[in-house]
Amino acid sequence: MIQLDQLSKRYTKNDWALRDVSLTIGTGMYGLLGPNGAGKTTLMRIVATLIPPTSGEVSVYGHTLKRPEDIRKVIGYLPQSIQFYPSMTGRELLDYVGVMKGIRHAADRRKQVQDVLEQVHLTEKASAKVRTYSGGMKRRLGIASALLGNPQLLIVDEPTAGLDPEERVRFRNLLSRFSVDRTVLLSTHIVADIETSCESAAVLSRGQLAFRGPLRELQRHADGKVWEMEVTERELALLPPHRVVASRREGAVVRCTIVAEQSPGLGAVLVPPSVEAGYLALLGGERDG
C-alpha cells in the first residue's frame, strides 16, 4: 500500500511542481496521467526518494520518508531517460545492481539476474556491451534492473516512450505480470498504455490532482459528450484540436470523434466514451475553463 498525504514540492519561490497531492494506491498497476509539466515525474522522484518533498508525507508499504533508505529497499525505479555504463555488459550491470540491492550471495544473484534477463528477453544480448544496445534494449535492461530483488513497488516513468509497437505490448504484459501482489506505478501521457493495463489511475494537472479512481470513472467524465460525425477537411481544421479524440479518412470526408458538451453540428451522433475521451474531457474542461 502506498499513501501520499498532502504531498507538495516547490523548486523555486511560487513555482509549485506539486501541490497537496493525496493518493492511496493498492496492489496492481496504477496509472499516473497528465500532460507534460503536470508534475508526474516530480511525484515519482519523490516516491523513489530521489528528491525530498517540500511538505507532505509518503508511505510505501509502511516505510515513510523519515527513513528513505528503507523505502529504497522495497522499490524498483525506472526513470524516463536512462543510460548505463557503456563498457559493461548487460549481465555485469545487473550483477552490480544486484549487489547494490543487497543480494549478497553470488549464486543467488546469478540466478535472479538470469531470471530477469529472461523476463525481458535479453538473454542473448546479456554478454554484449551496453554500448551496443538499441534504445528499446536499454529500456528492457532498465526494467530488468528495476525488477531485480523483487521490489514491492515498481516505479516506471514513461516506460514505452520510443518503443516499437511490439515492444510496447511486450512491455505492458511484463508489467502486468509483475503487478500481481505488488504495486506498479506507471506514469505516462499515452492513455492507451494505462487503458490496457491499469484498473485505476490518477490525473495530474498543473501540479494538482485532477482525478483519482477507477478508469471507468475517468471514462464517465465524457458521458454524453463524445460525438461522432463526418466533416470535410476544411471543417476539421476549424475544430479545437484538444477536443478531437480520433479522426479517420473515409473517401472525401473525415469521420472524427469529438468531445463536446453539446452536439458539435449536424449529423453528430453520441457514442460511448473511451478512457482517452474521459481524460480529454477532464483536461479539456479545465483548459476551456
Binding site: 522522484r45 523513489a48 526518494t49 530521489l50 533508505e69 529504497r72 529497499k73 522499490i75 524498483g76 525505479y77 525506472l78 526513470p79 531517460s81 536512462i82 543510460q83 555504463y85 545492481v97 547494490m100 540491492k101 543487497g102 532498465g142 534492473s145 528495476a146 516505479i155
Partner: peptide, 17 residues
C-alpha cells in the same frame, strides 16, 4: 559520470548511500 547525470537517476533509487 553518474551521480550528477539525469539519465543515471536509476542509481539514486538503489539502496546504497
Amino acid at each position: 559520470r553518474d551521480l550528477d547525470r539525469p539519465s543515471y537517476e536509476w542509481l539514486g533509487g538503489l539502496p546504497v548511500s
